[in-house]
């Protein structure tokens, strides 16, 4: 069994699709680091001068019209409070202040979770593509039949292929996340601030990184299982893209009630240890006017863990049953 998995790992890392996916991951990692640099770097002299000009202009307008603007704002607030007594239009904060101009100093502890979140989505996608291509290519090229004439125990073969897809993603995910963690630390440390990165913050980041690695591995397993079920990389990727475009994109607004079952939200809840979402609740008031409002809800970590876990187990199990019984051509 270990021997078969070792062979599959060798094959995985010899594949061109794996190399292309790795290169893609590296390029996207570099782009993410570049985006971090853009966010962390202080304003240049010319940008600062431009900001100063803009502030002076706003200040000039405030000096001329400020009291009137505050009065208008307060009047609008009174009007708004008729519908919602808690309405606050922030009339006390509309005066332009230099502290609100320019660029806030980026902090590592605040920046890193969003970097990790983006990276984990990228890794999940890479894992899915690698897993799907790794297994489906064997069916479409016909080499699966040849392989089974050397090792006819199908469950062993299946386990070794999925095992290799999952194990193969481990070093890739660890490398990408380490690169991002270290790169972001260096960039933010040089241009902005790493203050406040306490042991607790590191602990949270480590846990989030761990969950990102697990998500990538699960995506690779799901991709490989779908590769077994559909036997063509293009078919698997077509289904994945179809889901993203249709379910997560086009019909998302119409699917308010099923948001807790959308993959993207569950990924977020898994990574961030819970995620808020705002389904629209629509109603007709006493005067007959129809209105919709986003209501804050929490998708718990437990929900996302169970949901994603069951999905992966179902896919892997179904693919195992199919592979065990299917005639191989």
């Amino acid at each position: 069994m270990m021997r078969l998995t070792r062979v599959e790992l060798r094959r995985l890392f010899s594949r061109r699709l794996t190399t292309i996916a790795l290169l893609g991951a590296l390029i996207l990692t570099a782009l993410m680091l570049f985006a971090t640099y853009q966010q962390a770097k202080p304003l240049s002299g010319s940008e600062l001068a431009s900001q100063r000009t803009s502030f002076n202009e706003a200040r000039k307008q405030w000096d001329a019209n400020g009291p009137q603007q505050v009065q208008d704002c307060l009047a609008a607030q009174v009007e708004a409070q008729k519908a919602d007594p808690k309405a606050n239009l922030g009339c006390s904060t509309i005066e332009p202040k230099w502290a609100n101009w320019g660029k806030p100093v980026a902090k590592y502890a605040e920046l890193m979770p969003s970097v990790l979140s983006g990276a984990s989505m990228l890794l999940a996608f890479v894992g899915f593509v690698i897993g799907a291509g790794f297994v489906a290519a064997e069916f479409s090229s016909g080499s699966m039949a040849n392989w089974l004439t050397f090792e006819p125990r199908r469950l062993r073969v299946y386990t070794s292929k999925l095992g290799a897809a999952g194990l193969g993603l481990l070093p890739i995910a660890l490398a990408v996340l380490s690169l991002l963690t270290a790169g972001t630390w260096l960039i933010v440390g040089h241009f902005a601030s790493t203050a406040g990165t306490t042991t607790k913050v590191w602990g949270n980041l480590a846990q989030m990184g761990g969950r990102a690695v697990l998500l990538a591995v699960a995506a690779a397993l799901a991709g490989a299982a779908m590769g077994v079920l559909f036997r063509h990389t293009a078919a698997v990727l077509g289904i994945a893209v179809g889901y993203l475009v249709l379910v997560e994109g086009v019909f998302r607004q119409a699917l308010q009630g099923v948001q807790p079952w959308l993959l993207s939200l569950n990924f977020e809840a898994w990574l961030q240890h819970g995620a808020k979402y705002f389904p629209l609740v629509c109603k007709t008031d006493g005067q007959g006017s129809y209105s919709c409002q986003g209501v804050e809800k929490l998708l718990t970590f437990g929900h996302s863990s169970a949901y994603l876990g069951i999905l992966v187990v179902l896919l892997v199990g179904l693919a195992a049953l199919t592979f065990r019984r299917r005639d191989i051509s």
Binding site: V7, S141, A145, N146, F150
Partner: peptide, 22 residues
């Protein structure tokens, strides 16, 4: 069985090495 089927992007030697190792 029917036409020979190996991994097209691998060399002949690599294909056989994987089978031998398996």
């Amino acid at each position: 069985v029917e036409a020979p089927k190996f991994f097209p992007a691998f060399s002949g030697r690599k294909n056989l090495q994987l089978l031998a190792e398996a």
